[in-house]
Design a protein around this nucleic acid. Structure first.
Lengths: 188, 188
DNA sequence: CAATCAATATACCGAACGGTATAATACCAC
DNA sequence: GTGGTATTATACCGTTCGGTATATTGATTG
């Protein structure tokens, strides 16, 4: 692997494990087996490195979500496709998803969070659109699209977090269970 | 206010705003209007300061949750009391709750997360117990207490996060709506 | 072959990091 | 008033921080 991708990978590992602020560029470059000026040659700054990590790993995820959230009149089907997209991506890039999760409830005032904020906002908007469109078929959802989008994404993130920490499988059984729970509650 | 509490308050503000690793003790002591040795006199280390922040702010919250999650055969009532406890505490200590939220999906390998982990684990256990006991009255919940506890807490945190970012009120209307959603789904 | 340019290394910058040795203050009991 | 104790300030420690000036390499290109 060339040095640039090696740096990207090591930066992701370290950021996901200990957080952006707690990791120094020195440690990243050492882990990647290069020197600091090499890192700065490719990414310009520590912030630029984080931006490149987002760019590199998030693009396929964003496309997958966008594709899954195309709504054609069947809300349960669309939610299932979205959940599949989330679960599949989390399993393909678990370390990156762990990095993402760290920003979910952290709209703080750091260099890093600003970048993660728009990444999360894009996803939110895509899923919010689903609930807005679904009002045509389910009028009683009206006016609550934001709450539904937030709680649905929260539910998926809860599942993925459980899986990342070894408390659950991330399989079709779990997906169908939480989809049912979201749509029909815990009692039925 | 005496210096010790002043330091605690400033540390909370800064940690919640920019994260534990991104804030230096220098900045904390300056904000609090004291010098660094004063801070170290009271708390011994930066970690000790964070531990003291948790201790100071979390004790009343933990007691409130513990009290609300006493189960006596009425699950909807118990969930409502728990949600009330969460919402009330978040409104009383919004800055501390923002700090807490930052750790929810971040079981990383840093000094700070270790401390937050057990704090969150205690809450989780208390609420998990509710669902374990509720099996007596709702047999179909059996075997899913962990998932229910995680998703219920996740739902409450989603609401509080929405409120902290100005996207929603944190009132009785929202509480009843999400409690209904959790128990009966989005369609009914 | 010479010129160029991307890529990498050596060595360094000032500033901020977490933490401390020491001494001066202030209060309290005797 | 005198001895002890808790609290605070001055000044400093070695280390790491993000970032860079400069030189060297190696391949491409005219």
């Amino acid at each position: 692997m060339d040095n640039r991708n090696q740096i990207l990978k090591c930066a992701l590992d370290l950021f996901a494990a200990r957080g952006y602020a707690a990791v120094g560029v020195q440690e990243i470059s050492e882990t990647a087996g290069v020197t600091k000026p090499t890192l700065y040659h490719y990414f310009g700054s520590k912030q630029g490195l984080l931006a490149a990590v987002f760019e590199h790993y998030h693009t396929p995820f964003a496309r997958s979500i966008q594709q899954a959230s195309e709504y054609h009149g069947d809300l349960p089907l669309t939610l299932d496709r979205i959940a599949q997209a989330y679960f599949n991506f989390a399993m393909r890039e678990p370390v990156y998803y762990r990095l993402l999760l760290g920003f979910v409830f952290s709209p703080r005032e750091g260099d890093d969070c600003k970048m993660a904020e728009e990444v999360n906002a894009r996803q939110f908007t895509a899923i919010e659109q689903v609930f807005i469109q679904a009002v045509h078929e389910h009028g009683n959802l009206r006016g609550r699209h934001r709450l539904y989008a937030a709680t649905f994404i929260g539910l998926l993130n809860t599942c993925i977090s459980l899986w990342l920490n070894g408390h659950s499988q991330l399989d079709e059984t779990l997906r169908q269970r939480v989809l049912h729970q979201f749509q029909h509650g815990i009692y039925s």
